[in-house]
Amino acid sequence: MFHFSNIVRTKGDPKIVEGGPSLKQPVDQLARALGWFSIGLGVVELFAPRRVTETLGMEGHETLVRSFGIREIMAGIMTLSVEKNAGLWARVGGDGLDAAALLSGLTADNPKKGNIALALLMVGGIAMLDYRAAQDTKPRRPPRDARRKLYPNRSGFPKGIESVRSAARQIAHAGHNEVKQGDARRVP
């Protein structure tokens, strides 16, 4: 993106001399890889479904493969966003759907059942990665019922709210008297 946007840093501004540690974890890299994989697979399923069904001996299921492609792309986009945990869980669910669809094609009369078995193995492996990444990227927001510190004494008004309110009332009262002296726009 940066290469196309034609944005450059101004000469003379500070430059990095020594990089500090990143808070990014290996699991963030894994999530990113899974996101792009999801989008790639989704594009293949969406635009070349016949190729997929022929490889698996499941001709006639092209519409299903296309819909799975859309699902993969959506999950991939979500996995690459700040909501990566939701995207990864969507991928885990999708892996289940993929496995169910593949199992339905694993019949004795399917000449490509070897490919289906291989595909099932891949789905299983990727499902494990998805699950692991989903577990490790759980949002660290405190649960809704967690105990929180409250700040009931932080009014920000050293002289007290009542003093502020009464000062404001006095100013408003003075303003109202001025209105009575003839500012027609402000007379109710």
Binding site: P152, S155, A168
Partner: peptide, 29 residues
């Protein structure tokens, strides 16, 4: 919130979902 109070609003209503922030808003009037 504090500015609206200082500027003399009759009533200030604050909307959020986090208890700590709501408690701070309440403290401010």
């Amino acid at each position: 919130i504090r500015s609206a109070i200082l500027l003399g609003a009759n009533q200030v209503i604050a909307i959020d979902c986090l208890p700590e922030r709501l408690s701070m808003a309440e403290a401010g009037g």
